[in-house]
Design a protein around this nucleic acid. Sequence first.
RNA 1: GGACGGGUGGGUGAGUGGCUAAAACCAGCAGACUGUAAAUCUGCCGCUCCUUGCGGGCUACGGAGGUUCGAAUCCUCCCCCGUCCA
Length: 308
Amino acid sequence: MSRAERLVVVLGPTASGKSALGISLAGQLGGEVLVCDSTQVYRHFDIGTAKVLGAGQKGIAHHLFDLVEPEEVFTAGEYRSRALAALDDLRRREKTPVITAGTGLYLRALLEGLAEAPARSEELRERLRSRARVRGAEYLHKVLARLDFEAASRIAAGDTQKVIRAIEMRVLTGRSVGEIHRAGRQALEGYRVIKIGLLPPRPDLYARIEARVRAMLGAGWLGEVEDLVALGIAPDAKPFQFIGYGELREHLRGELSLDEAIGMIQQATRNFAKRQITWFRREPGVNWLVGFGDDPEIASAALDLARS
RNA sequence: GGACGGGUGGGUGAGUGGCUAAAACCAGCAGACUGUAAAUCUGCCGCUCCUUGCGGGCUACGGAGGUUCGAAUCCUCCCCCGUCCA
């Protein structure tokens, strides 16, 4: 019978200092960092995803980044299984896991589990997408309403991505989304989870985001994008859709000035941070700290929480 | 000095007499989201009052006057901005 071990989660919007806090907590707790970020799982996309590499890791082992090649599809389910394996590994070596989480869905998939749902079917999705293109989003939503009224009433008609997923689940399993979800999911067991949320004042966060975008450019982000393009990675590969990569490619093609690209990247990052905050506010049991993770006072408060 | 063009809500920008607190988009704020999630989508967005209603009041389209039952929209003068001619 295994006792519950401590699992520390550091969550918050982009640029709130999660990585720095994660490293400092792991250092003081004898732990290792598990990254929970949907973009850092892609190899070669380093600067724009704010990956912590090499000396930046300050000697603390990091896991769950650089997992797949740019043209591979990665999902919440895949993250969950890799994270479970990583947790088992740390448990065997008696290391405290410190999860730095920026992707709320992946964190939830790990902590609360995922329903027994089918994996995506590209063929079906492509068929549905083309239907939506020709006949409109409303049409697809009506199709869903016929197949699964409950799901249709919960999903906005304009949200084609979620409508398609719901139809996909229904078609592939013959069961409704509600049935599949009500069948339950396997939550993570055996851990005492301590969640620490970083929530800097909004204006400060936005200012930090803007400065960080410029710092990334200063660190050679544009060169990274040039290299990625030179590698011949498909332009529609998912990581090229991450914030900044598309804008910088447009700049390299001469379609945007660098200043325009920077402005757009800063904007998109601010919008993204806001969505992260909205998601994490719903996360249960979070101990919120108002400030940045690299602030010594915040770090000290976080350590107290983590040791509690 | 002269000739045109233009000044609209935080920004861009529609709107040429009533249907206009004023399209649309952006920003901002709030929210949803169980396998694309750095994605996708929804709502609010001048101020204010209340018996929260396709409710009342106030303020608003550079400024000041004027025409009109009624003006962002028409007239007059003035102030700015842009382009061109001197």
